[in-house]
Design a protein around this nucleic acid. Structure first.
Lengths: 214, 214
DNA sequence: CCCTCTTGGGTAACGGCACTATCCAAGCAT
DNA sequence: ATGCTTGGATAGTGCCGTTACCCAAGAGGG
């Protein structure tokens, strides 16, 4: 298949596909000669993956490139490959470690991991972007004066642990390493927006149950 | 307090505060004369709220304005006000209703709400952005060839319902209407990134438990 | 074989967004 | 009275995803 057909079947303009090729989000096609390259079903699939990450997941192009670079790096073990791919996702800005709220949030997050018994996660606290993101969120809440207790976070943590188990169960149903990694990454990106949608629907549902629609 | 102090105490540059004032994210200060205005603690709080939504929640400035406009509109009932505020959050692009995957995703989403017994949410399917977002996510998955069964979505839905109950429990602990609405909106925005962080940490934890770190 | 169309490749431009910088006249503080 | 700060306005900046345009080489149909 050539550029025009790839464009037609994916619904992405040829100009944009060229841009993705330039940015390294899409591997180059098989070069037939100086002015022709051929693409296959794998390119189409990759292109759809890229579009899903950008449009549904809202990732910037640079983040997609980093994520895919790690997904494709077969020299890494699966755990590392997956971790690296997830860590390439866009992160919350670096917290100001001088800030009192940030310091308090660090202690709170550590206590949370302890209470949840997440011993593995505790090993990663200094390096995992997810940990940093947690700290920043908690600090933002506290700075605004919200003072719910530590148990609430524990409850949220337990629920998200259940979600994570489901995530990994899904990953395990795929036989090949490549599919496992891709699924895990896609799960982290696409189900993000799916879970967000489900949560908001659930809020609307529950709010209607409790208060009606008056 | 004057502009300079507001800037110092919030860590936001005066130029940016002026920009927010122009964009209507911040109400104008009490005008003392042609060249002086005074701000109070409420302005500081609002500014921190705006910053949290933009930096932690990643909302665009225009979305923050819409959200706050609804939060502040006292002519609406709480349910409506909250709904309106949530619906102003940035949404996934409009799905192409001609697309077969989108149509199938519609049916799947309807079946999901049925299976979950979310009767209130079903009333909102045609208008709720969350519903649309769900459809787009599911369609993206299916387009990429993922074919997990309907039960998986039901499981995710149940878990997010638990999350939503927690969300609303928190909201109920605040006495005033204004605080309730603000908390609910902030909950939808800030806890989004907090839950995301918890989920990724949980994934790291669970992945370590299942496969170790080899 | 000729003529048109498409190809990859490169570069420049566009539109949106979140700020940032600069200039201004009016006024407050010392 | 004089320097600094204020609100107000406008223009500029840097980034980002995309698009438009141009080119020479080659494909494809008659």
């Amino acid at each position: 298949m050539r550029l025009a057909e790839l464009s037609r079947r994916s619904g992405v303009s040829t100009a944009t596909i060229k841009y993705y090729l330039r940015e390294g989000l899409l591997p180059p096609g098989r070069q037939l000669n100086a002015t022709t390259a051929e693409y296959d079903e794998e390119h189409l699939r990759r292109l759809r993956l890229v579009r899903a990450m950008i449009q549904v997941g809202g990732l910037p192009v640079a983040a997609v490139r980093e994520v895919l670079r790690n997904v494709d790096d077969e020299s890494l073990s699966r755990t590392i490959r997956l971790g690296a791919a997830l860590w390439a996702l866009p992160q919350v800005p670096e917290p100001d470690e001088e800030d009192d709220f940030v310091r308090a949030a660090h202690r709170e997050a550590d206590g949370l991991l302890e209470a949840l018994g997440w011993s593995n996660a505790r090993l990663l606290t200094t390096i995992s972007p997810a940990y940093r993101s947690l700290v920043v969120s908690v600090a933002a809440f506290r700075r605004l004066g919200y003072d719910w207790g530590a148990e609430l976070l524990v409850e949220y943590g337990k629920l998200m642990h259940e979600v994570a188990k489901l995530d990994l169960d899904v990953v395990e149903t795929y036989p090949s390493e490549a599919e496992k990694v891709e699924t895990a990454v896609l799960g982290a990106v696409l189900t993000e927006s799916m879970l967000q949608a489900l949560r908001r629907l659930a809020q609307e549902e529950e709010s209607g149950r409790r208060y009606g629609f008056e």
